[in-house]
């Protein structure tokens, strides 16, 4: 399962309204809820926030990957928030996060869940892709960057 199979333009936002971690997580969760893949919003939110409480998923270089497994998810769902100026996400390097990959998976989808997390890790380890995503002018453009990176529309 690829990132581009989980995302589409409607699951990518370049206009995050919030500037705080919980608000951003809720915004991305709402996108995922709209996709119909999440049964219980409050349960899903609790799972993500409980995971954040263990240690922030704000990484380095402007990347954050809030994630969890929860029975609230009917299937693996993803959303992506892009904020050029960055948002406070309690990141490992103390810098604002610009790419926020939200991932929620059913409890029973451990294999696929870790594979997708591995794919996000690989994707975001490529500086040129990260820079291109941060500079994307639209959801469609961001989605095309990911598809291209995953080889679906060629290099």
């Amino acid at each position: 399962m690829r990132i581009s199979e989980l995302l589409n333009e409607s699951l990518i936002t370049l206009s995050l309204q919030h500037r705080d971690k919980t608000g951003i997580i809720e915004e991305l969760l709402d996108l995922a809820v709209q996709s119909g893949k999440i049964g219980h919003r409050s349960e899903a939110l609790k799972a993500i926030l409980d995971r954040e409480a263990l240690m922030s998923t704000g990484l380095e270089k402007g990347i954050a990957i809030p994630h969890a497994k929860s029975s609230a998810a009917n299937e693996i769902c993803m959303a992506l928030g892009i904020c050029r100026e960055g948002v406070e996400f309690d990141s490992a390097d103390g810098k604002p996060s610009q790419l926020i990959f939200f991932l929620l998976a059913p409890e029973s989808a451990a294999v696929q869940n870790i594979k997708v997390l591995g794919q996000i890790a690989r994707l975001t380890s490529d500086t040129s892709i990260v820079d291109a995503l941060k500079a994307a002018g639209s959801s469609q453009e961001a989605f095309d960057i990911i598809r291209k990176a995953e080889g679906e529309i060629g290099f």
């Binding site: 263990l54 990957i65 497994k69 451990a110 870790i114 997390l117 996000i120």
Partner: peptide, 30 residues
């Protein structure tokens, strides 16, 4: 059980240790 991927995720700080162990159990059960 794909231990190496779990360890990579912990190394990349995507997982915390307790989460790695939890997923390892999930994979084992699977």
């Amino acid at each position: 059980v794909n231990i190496s991927l779990l360890q990579e995720l912990t190394k990349a700080r995507i997982f915390v240790k307790i989460e790695e162990m939890d997923y390892e159990q999930d994979l084992e059960q699977d």
